[in-house]
Design a protein around this nucleic acid. Structure first.
Lengths: 200, 200
DNA sequence: CATGTAAACTGCACGGTGTAGTTTATATAT
DNA sequence: ATATATAAACTACACCGTGCAGTTTACATG
């Protein structure tokens, strides 16, 4: 690997670390150069401004997270089991260190500069990408009965986010795998109690 | 009212306004004194440091919010109607300018200084104070069937928070009263589908 | 294998700016 | 009279971003 690429990576790694632990505002470029083991001038040779560096960090972290499989509706499988797969993937994402890092950095920035909010929200990660399609198919197959599919999808995701993501984000507590399993089971039970088609 | 108390209030009002609109970091003490129509020296006569002023603001805002009625379970009324009262109160709180202000300021600080997280979380506002008692009574009366009452209470509140509070907090969108009514209805429908006692 | 060279890195000083908090001298309210 | 408010200048410091002289790295050419 070229030296310049190595240095660039050191800078990005340091920025990710410091922006996360101290916030963008409280991270000085001197401190950052020190942590990256790079001269401050080199930082500025790679990134014209602090804001450019911040944008690059955010992009890199989003790219890292963009992967992730899609669960498609399968009429031959029990609906609960399929929802569990979706929920497990989502909880794994929401509680991953990588996701929490980018979320914390992004949210801190958004709260300080509300004008950036719209720009951020358009990036679709996790099951948000496909859940509407999944629910539509499940309704078409007669397994679920949902009047407002996007709303119901949000209800499901929000259950997971509220119990898993926000508590971690605000530094309150992490869940054990057993607790996560309980959260997932209850989210599914709640969802199916409302939307599963009744026989008869 | 004494002059000094009047000035103190002007300072607190200005701080609340500016800390909310610009963030604590981006509010200078000069700007603050200007907005309060008070000399900067007077600010420092009342509050030794910027941080002391911030703490005072937070305390005052919490105190303002600490009021609020309690809904007690009433076996003679339909459960859906009682849950609607609770939800309406909660949504009114969560979408009030006062609550959003203190929440934004507090959360920004918590995210920058995680060691303060525990301290904040212990303050109980809104229906969080009484919902466990309400659900316990409703179960005892046979109207609801809930295995894990604290968990179910959270499920209910989190529905409201997710749809009403976080989107406003992150500056994404405000809901119209009609949308809020829809959110409340769906939260209740979801909750009762899962937990309402079935006849038979 | 020796030498040249272009690109990248380093270290440091510096300009400009913003801001927390202080000082001083004066005016005003109770 | 005496405590408090005011205005404006001042100190001390932290930070962003730049300029530059000199050094290192990677690689090509003789």
């Amino acid at each position: 690997m070229k030296l310049t690429d190595k240095k660039r990576m050191q800078i990005l790694d340091a920025a990710e670390e410091l922006f996360h632990s101290s916030g963008v505002e409280h991270t000085s470029m001197d401190q950052l150069a020190l942590q990256a083991k790079v001269s401050k001038r080199t930082v500025y040779n790679h990134f014209a401004t602090k804001d450019a560096l911040f944008q690059a960090i955010l992009q890199r972290m989003f790219d890292k997270l963009a992967e992730g499989g899609e669960v498609r509706f399968d009429a031959t499988q029990p609906i609960a089991q399929q929802l569990r797969r979706i929920a497990q993937d989502e909880v794994a994402l929401l509680s991953s260190a990588a996701f929490l890092r980018v979320a914390k950095i992004a949210i801190m920035q958004v709260m300080q500069r509300p004008e950036l909010a719209q720009h951020m929200n358009n990036s679709s990660l996790g099951c948000k990408r496909y859940i509407d399609n999944f629910l539509t198919d499940a309704c078409a197959a007669g397994v679920l009965q949902i009047a407002d599919i996007p709303f119901a999808g949000k209800q499901f995701i929000y259950q997971l986010k509220s119990f898993v993501f926000y508590p971690s984000l605000f530094g309150l507590e992490q869940q054990t795998p057993a607790q996560q399993a309980h959260i997932i089971n209850e989210a599914i039970a709640l969802f199916l109690a409302r939307y599963q088609s009744k026989p008869g």
